[in-house]
């Protein structure tokens, strides 16, 4: 953990095991986490900027009581930060999101899901 330890501490509410390591229920959560760690390592944003963006999402009304939407908040925070920093536009991100969903639906069993599989692309 070492290298990522200090950064983790400022992600409020991150689910952790008894040993203090983050716990992911599904791979996409680990991917979202890893992307955030990487962007921070590259200096795209500071951890205080990140923590603020995450808190903003976490304290929105309508959260699930069991906190099972924690990583949904995480992804929403990351999306916001990335668009606020003008890395991409919200429209572009939405379009790509829908494109990935169409690609998934259009991919037959046994094939890897690729963005190119979106029939509207």
């Amino acid at each position: 953990m070492n290298a990522h330890e200090p950064s983790l501490a400022v992600s409020p509410g991150l689910p952790k095991s008894n040993d203090g390591v983050p716990v992911f229920a599904e791979p996409w959560q680990a991917e979202a986490f890893a992307m955030t760690v990487r962007l921070h390592e590259k200096g795209v944003f500071s951890w205080s900027e990140w923590a603020e963006a995450l808190s903003h999402e976490l304290y929105k009304p309508g959260r699930r009581a069991d906190a099972s939407d924690y990583f949904d908040c995480w992804v929403a925070a990351l999306s916001r930060l990335v668009t606020e920093l003008s890395i991409t536009s919200p429209e572009n991100l939405d379009q790509l999101t829908q494109s990935w969903q169409r690609a998934a639906e259009a991919t037959p069993h046994g094939k890897p899901i690729l963005l190119e599989n979106d029939p509207e692309r």
Binding site: W28, F71, V82, T97, W100, A106, T107, H109
Partner: peptide, 28 residues
């Protein structure tokens, strides 16, 4: 049958979208 085979939730698809954008920009 495809609809039963493969489905990305909104958040899952958004993670893929972020990954695509950030990779294109050379950030990850």
């Amino acid at each position: 049958d495809h609809h039963h085979d493969n489905h990305f939730s909104d958040t899952q698809a958004r993670v893929k979208a972020l990954e695509t954008v950030l990779t294109q920009k050379g950030l990850i």
